[in-house]
Amino acid sequence: PEAADLRALSRHLYEAYLKYFPLTKAKARAILSGKTGDNAPFVIHDMKSLMEGEQFINCKQIPTQEHQPQTSALSVGHGGLMGAHLGSECNILDAVELRFFHSCQSRSAEAVREVTEFAKSIPGFINLDLNDQVTLLKYGVIEVLIIMMAPLMNKDGTLIAYGQIFMTREFLKSLRKPFCQMMEPKFEFSVKFNTLELDDSDMALFLAVIILSGDRPGLLNVKPIEQLQETVLHALELQLKLNHPDSLQLFAKLLQKMTDLRQIVTDHVHLIQLLKKTEVDMCLHPLLQEIMKDLY
């Protein structure tokens, strides 16, 4: 009976994952391996193709700041985390670059909403103290977004705009400092993470485990959070045994990734905080500001 309950929990979280996250790993890997026929993604590999990419895609406008340029926005995939846009007096190429970073922020804010809805679907989450729900999301959401970037990435680049665009790693490395430094650590992490070969049903459980971390600073009532996490951990362990019977120590390897993840988030937040200090007129999306303020 206990195993049956754990399997039911796994199914529930997988269904919530499919409901709230539009680009699954299965779909992303099909796109990346060219199995989607004529629907190959548009490739952005330089400034010219970045400008073409803006016209290539029909994307939704997500207004954020009052003085944002009203231009078409590239909706970035799960991983729009670069989080900065800069002020005026730019040439045309700079303006394109800036619009891209603005789009990253808009997509990140939307992704935070998706992760919040997923968190609310974890049994017991909405019964936790409301302050603790806020804390768990504040500290967990960037970790979740970075994990969700991994399926969109390979060693050569990343899918963005819900899989409609592939942006090369070399192009991201060619952006001016410090923007060029933002994605490279995520690529390094993702390439290693992808060797674990998790599927979407495994990912759903792993994301829930991350969200239910009882060691986040400032939690008021740790015990119920740890109890919820323990149940999801059992479900994850069972899931991995059944889904990856030949992959030795996969559960342990996956848990070790959580340590690497915290370092990546810390570095990312420090980079954003540095940007705020050094870049004139830089604005952060209010939701991202809330999350990153006093984070690490």
Binding site: I62, V112, T116, L130, V134
Partner: peptide, 21 residues
């Protein structure tokens, strides 16, 4: 804490559309 995280709090309390974000 929820006072300092009004948008996050709103997201937790009800579904907010991307435009509202």
């Amino acid at each position: 804490l929820k006072e300092k995280h009004k948008i996050l709090h709103r997201l937790l309390q009800n579904s907010t559309s991307p435009v509202e974000l």
